[in-house]
Design a protein around this nucleic acid. Structure first.
Length: 793
RNA sequence: GGACGAUUAGCUCAGUUGGCUAGAGCGUCUCGUUUACACCGAGAAGGCCGCAGGUUCGAGUCCUGCAUCGUCCACCA
């Protein structure tokens, strides 16, 4: 646009009336990247204090969603603020291989071509996965850039790259040597669809209607039991009753042999208080191999365990004639047989919580199998580690939060964290999937070798299992900084200053990072944890494809500008609370970005300086310095929404609505206008980096807002008297405007006004402002009267 | 079953140590083109602050109980 605004005396090149984000954003991002300032090594000045944050690595399963956008916006605010504040600032980006999630995704893609991973074989399947991962990463990179993130791409990491794999193997070996990792035969959650174990946290519950069956094992069995899963009864080794239950007390201690639909079972009758006398018949068949609760009973009462369902989800050979059937088929056959012999007395409808896999939603089978575990309760002492003096992983993870070394925001999540830690059981870390870190254990006959690298000599076979994805992401704060090498980065940036993430992965990830890092480094991974909420739609519903209420951050960023999207995710939010998002909200902040653009545009047209200082000047500068103080404090305290609201109120409600209007009557305001704008752009920059950087360059002709110095509060400029006086002037103007509207005076008409006020002198001095802003022709001000009276003549 | 959170204007939410004549944005209504902005400006209407008790000179704010909604954890065969 190059339309001269005025011909003759002033000639300014007029920029577009409305801010057009699309025109600038990509170019501005490229400029930032070229400047090199995302990388702390290139930052100017002597930066003594450091600020570091590692990006929670998005899964390489596909595209970023609006939840990621919240994360990126918050972290970018922190990074940009600290960079401008003079900190040695590192924001390190990366991605997570997300073992099960990614493998499941690729398998789904294969299924569309009617193939399974077994058709391809391990090697080719992993090639497919890598192809998919590369594509995913490209998309994610583009999206992170689009959101305006000032992260250091030169240090980008991936949980499955060379360096991170080395870290993973090194920690595994260390833990093994310390006796914290062991291999054991234990009941685990098995997903037959994924053909892998799941940790306790990867199991979800879904309410389902099912039937409770009441029956006797055979005709000689003295009483009935109740179950929802008759097929698992093939693996029963005991029947549990409450020790006080009069009906069954007499049987406790006996062992009864039965013929259960053709299979011989030897059932010990045990008494245990965990049995609910009211439920079912008050007698429970105990299946140690296929129920978590039963397995605990079995341990307590020293019961045998018979595995009747295998890893393939089918009935095992142990179960005799039902071998090879699916559990459901077996159930039907068993019920039919029981019915025929009149052992089945009743079927009751109940709703019950089915355990399902958090990835694929299939029912989870608890079954016993040989797996690798991390012992979270074993007390150990580690030389050179200040935390581990006869302490367990769990002890330390609790301690560092209890002692306030790690601060969780909001604080109420600390309680949730402690509760989870207290109930944590040994962590099953092996997974029977192909994609991931292969377990660094090799076998040769009876011999076992655990090491960072393959053992020398031939005939060694590596363990086929891979590690739980949270094992490697648990090392994220230090593996990204180059550990196990002793790098400068670790010295400078670890422990990281803050971990910013969603509260939904407090257990999955945050807790595990604390476990793994205190153990490995003897250091906490981060000093602060800031937990953001989930993004929901306008009605507060979760966003989901099936509801069709998903807002794609990139779509709306195209439409309204990235700055608007960022603001809409920050304003009106606080840690730990969910965010409601709608297009209207985003559009509202698009309007704000435009307002800021136009403030810049207006100021760029001004050129007269040197007017003498007026009340309005003292007022706006006082307000500005108060603003600098409050916004800085809010940002220090992670109150991003407060800071943003204060900035908006000042920018729009004070600077634009009042000071800019006044500058049209008071001459020579250009310097003040520019000074205020300049500071405002700096204060706004962490929130809305694009539009501020554009106005900085286009309107003020300056460069590199990204490293502009954060303003200090100028205490001399804070002027309470000016603020009080200005409020009086403002109220008089407002009152007159109100009266005009009430008396239905046409907007364009000039009026005559008479004021009686105790502030005569002040109002006379500010007469030019009042006349202009209230559109007054003749203004008469009288001094009598205790309160202000205004009359329109 | 246990824990946590929410409940304030039509909608989304502020209200930080009790002082409130309860605020903002959006929406609604009225008016409006003046050196930036109609993605704008001026003005207005709109609230027993979920319910019931209590503490206090004073409660949206603190305490107790209840209700509704939501989330997490545990899980019963």
């Amino acid at each position: 646009m190059s339309t001269p605004l005025y011909s003759g005396t002033i000639c300014v090149y007029m920029s577009e009336k409305a801010y057009n984000p699309e025109k600038y954003e990509d170019e501005v991002y490229k400029r930032w990247e070229r400047s090199g300032y995302f990388n702390p090594d290139n930052l100017p000045g002597d930066r003594k204090k450091s600020f570091s944050i590692v990006m929670p690595p998005p899964n390489v399963t596909g595209v970023l969603h609006v939840g990621h956008a919240v994360m990126l916006a918050l972290e970018d605010i922190m990074a940009r603020y600290h960079r401008m504040r003079g900190y040695d600032t590192l924001w390190l980006p990366g991605t997570d291989h997300a073992a099960i999630a990614t493998q499941t995704k690729v398998e789904k893609l294969l299924k569309e071509k009617d193939k399974t991973r077994h058709d391809l074989g391990q090697e080719d399947f992993l090639k497919e996965v890598r192809k998919f991962v590369d594509q995913s990463k490209d998309t994610i990179h583009r999206q992170i850039r689009k959101m305006g993130c000032s992260c250091d791409w030169s240090r980008e990491a991936y949980t499955l790259d060379e360096q991170r794999s080395l870290a993973t193997r090194t920690v595994f070996k260390k833990m093994y040597d310390d006796g914290l990792i062991y291999r054991g035969d234990r009941l685990v959650n098995w997903c037959p669809r994924c053909e892998s174990t799941l940790s306790d946290d990867e199991v979800e519950y879904r309410e389902e209607d099912s039937k409770l069956y009441f029956f006797k094992y055979d005709e000689d069995f003295p009483f009935e039991i109740a179950t929802t899963r008759p097929e698992t009864k093939l693996g029963d080794t005991a029947v549990a009753v409450h020790p006080d239950d009069k009906r069954y007390k007499k049987y406790i201690g006996e062992t009864i042999d039965v013929n259960f639909v053709g299979k011989r079972l030897s059932l010990k009758i045990i008494g245990d208080k965990s049995v609910d006398m009211e439920f079912g018949t008050g007698a429970v068949g105990v299946t140690p191999a296929h129920s978590m609760a039963d397995s605990q009973l079995a341990e307590k009462h020293k019961l045998e365990s018979i595995k009747v369902i295998g890893e393939d989800g089918k009935i095992t050979v142990e179960a005799g004639k039902f071998f090879g059937l699916t559990p459901l088929e077996a159930r039907e056959r068993i019920l039919k047989s029981l019915e025929k012999n009149e052992f089945l007395s009743k079927e009751e409808d109940i709703t019950h919580n089915l355990s399902v896999c958090y990835r694929c939603g299939e029912g989870v089978e608890p079954l016993s199998s040989k797996q690798w575990f991390i012992d979270v309760n074993k007390k150990i002492t580690i030389k050179g580690n200040k935390y581990f003096k006869n302490k367990s992983l769990k002890d330390v993870a609790v301690k560092v939060v209890k002692d306030g070394e790690i601060k969780i925001m909001p604080k109420r999540f600390e309680k949730v964290y402690f509760h989870w830690m207290d109930n944590l059981r040994d962590w099953c870390i092996s997974r029977q999937i192909w994609f991931g870190h292969q377990i660094p254990v090799w076998y040769k006959g009876e011999k076992v070798y655990v090491g960072v690298d393959e053992p020398k000599g031939s005939g060694w076979e590596q363990d086929e299992d891979t590690l739980d994805t949270w094992f490697s992401s648990g090392l994220w704060t230090f593996s990204t900084l180059g550990w196990p090498e002793k790098t400068e980065d670790i010295k400078k940036y670890h422990p990281t200053t803050v971990l910013e993430t969603g509260y939904d992965i407090l257990f999955f990830w945050v807790a595990r990072m604390i476990l793994m890092t205190t153990y490995t480094l003897g250091e906490i991974p981060f000093e602060n944890v800031y937990l953001h909420g989930l993004v929901r739609d306008k009605q507060g519903q979760k966003m989901s494809k099936s509801l069709g209420n998903v807002i794609d951050p990139l779509d709306v960023a195209e439409k309204y500008g990235t700055d608007a999207v960022r603001l809409s995710l920050i304003m009106g939010t606080s840690p730990g609370n969910d965010v409601k998002l709608s297009e209207e909200k985003i559009a509202g902040f698009r309007n704000f970005a435009n307002k800021l653009w136009n403030i810049g545009r207006f100021i760029s047209f001004q050129e007269k300086c040197g007017g003498k200082e007026t009340l309005a000047d003292r007022w706006i500068l006082s307000r500005l310095n108060n603003l600098i103080k409050e916004v800085s404090e809010d940002l220090e305290n992670y109150n991003f929404s407060f800071a943003g609201e204060k900035l908006r109120d000042f920018t729009w409600g004070e600077f634009a609505d009042w000071y800019l209007e006044i500058s049209k009557v008071e001459e020579g305001k250009t310097k003040v206008l520019k000074d205020v704008l300049e500071k405002l752009l700096i204060l706004w920059h962490p929130f809305i980096p694009y539009v501020t950087e554009v106005v900085w360059k286009e309107m003020l002709g300056k460069r590199n807002l990204i490293i502009a110095e954060w303003p200090e509060v100028d205490k001399k400029k804070i002027d309470e008297k000016a603020e009080e006086e200005f409020v009086i002037v403002r109220e008089v103007v407002a009152k007159i405007r109100n009266m005009r509207a009430e008396q239905k005076v046409e907007g364009g008409r000039m009026i005559d006004v008479s004021i009686i006020s105790k502030d005569k002198k002040l109002l006379e001095e500010q007469e030019h402002i009042i006349k202009r802003l209230a559109r007054i022709e003749n203004l008469e001000i009288k001094a009598d009267g205790k309160k202000t009276e205004i009359v329109i003549k």
